[in-house]
Design a protein around this nucleic acid. Sequence first.
DNA 1: TTGAAAGCGCTAACAT
DNA 2: ATGTTAGCGCTTTCAA
Lengths: 337, 337
Amino acid sequence: MRSSQVTIKDIARILGISPSTVSRALKNHPDISEETKVAVNELALKLKYQPNAVALSLKHSRSNTIGVIIPEIVHYFFSSVISGIEDVAYEAGFTVIICQSNEKYDREVANAKMLLSHRVDGVLVSISKETTNFDHLVMLQEGGLPLVFFDRIVPEIIADQVIINDEEAAYKATKHLIENGRRRIAHFAGPQNLLIGRDRKEGYLRAIREAGLQADPQLIIDADTYEKALIATNHLLTMDNPPDGIFATNDLTAIGAMQSLQKKGIKIPQQIAVVGFSDGRFSGITEPNLTSVDQHGYEMGSVATEILLNRLLSPSETYVPQTRVLSANLIVRGSSK
Amino acid sequence: MRSSQVTIKDIARILGISPSTVSRALKNHPDISEETKVAVNELALKLKYQPNAVALSLKHSRSNTIGVIIPEIVHYFFSSVISGIEDVAYEAGFTVIICQSNEKYDREVANAKMLLSHRVDGVLVSISKETTNFDHLVMLQEGGLPLVFFDRIVPEIIADQVIINDEEAAYKATKHLIENGRRRIAHFAGPQNLLIGRDRKEGYLRAIREAGLQADPQLIIDADTYEKALIATNHLLTMDNPPDGIFATNDLTAIGAMQSLQKKGIKIPQQIAVVGFSDGRFSGITEPNLTSVDQHGYEMGSVATEILLNRLLSPSETYVPQTRVLSANLIVRGSSK
DNA sequence: TTGAAAGCGCTAACAT
DNA sequence: ATGTTAGCGCTTTCAA
């Protein structure tokens, strides 16, 4: 095992020339004779020489690697974001190191240190549900790493951001329910320390108020997981005055709601309409199909990466952070009409 | 921007001592005086010193990094595998570089070269649907990198493998349909250049034969994507003698089948029963719920990583590749009974 | 046209 | 108890 890999020195030794000549020949330096170039390149091919990226990173203080800190890979939205990141990075010859925080603050901090230690050139971040202190991210910036936030951004930190307009999307979703005659609309809210959680709730409230409806605090329930949604739905059904619509902060909770409702024999959408958020593979699969906000994961990943690579490849003196807001459209399906 | 990061030299210069003393102090070397240790560690903390993993990799010819080559992240199965990989690697202080082949041979080759170039210590691989030539993977082995295959393995290459018993699982799934009275069972087959595709078909055929049923080639259709499943299902329904059961090579095709059937007013499972493969988030969401083989993605990822790390951390002279077969159980739900 | 030497950050054998 | 030196693989300035 561990038969060490071919280096420039090996090629130099075999050919009886110096390492620097080999290096130059490999990058087609004009000074090198055609003869030498051919010999070097042929041998390199034969020995399956692969440049040592580690040595290059050390030499250039540039790793051609970007880091990603993401809550959990096993969500369709996040895995599509990664897919977008990967594709753009691959095209540009960049390597991607992906770290999951698993929604844990401590692990997110460890991830940040690890990326700093690996001297990645920049980092894409979507913070965990637990994160309320951002020193570890500031540390990255202080280390000279450009940061690009996506989806779960940190307004307190000055950096590039890629988001959808969560407030607007939530507003549209709620308004859609109202326009379909719903008057008591419940909201399954996400964590309020995340901006997306607050924004979605805000949008919901704006639509309610604008329609002259009463915002009932009892109808706003913290429920951002499938399990919590099951409980929350059953709770809603015990009320004297149960809701006639539910706007959930993500698709999984919307589906939890649908299943609880159907188990109790409630008709969707006739008795209670349901709308989700973050259109994934699920929405077309439920019966009825789920109305949901399309969150454009792949596009978010690719745009965020383009912004980051742009910072890396053409650094400007005047750093003006940009915020890209992707349009989020409501896809209306059977669960709400 | 690009304010370079703190190094051991910086600390040495500030403290007026040599870099090697700093290095030793940081790793709590017994020779170093308590006084110096305290001074060094305090300053390191204050300056937020993070060891340069790149320099360490070069020095030790060991990157503490493992590579992963995976077809597509945006599949629940693969993303749960990654989750298992990540968790085990994280615990052991290893970094993970994930590459997607996007089911393309060329990109898989590029991924392999990239990982070799980055001098990862070992690689976890699940090959693409297109891959029939394995030189790029042999190249990794020749470069001294231990390989561990999972799910989509390559029997031609001598290496560790983690799989479920696909043949057995497919047999069980088909037998289950037969025991429920089905006599004409269709199979949506995966790519036959993948062993898992062949094995699943084999298991299907064995169950059919064992029950004394006729294997009808017309009932075996290449369909491994959602779209293909829609077409295949409609095709089946045009037959004079349509099937009364479908065993699909994955859940997405099973769901495609269910939706096509329901659109035509066919009752599931009364008229046609459906069984999928690779139990994911979907199975509990369809109506009726989907009977499926649980593929244990997370476990597959964690076991594969443990095997790889074991090879790395305690290399033995006698290399005996192991094959770990995880038990795969059929989860029976409403779509088939 | 090619080679020698220095250095990226760190460690470890070898001084002192 | 601490410093000096060499080297991991590669590039690049300077010298020949």
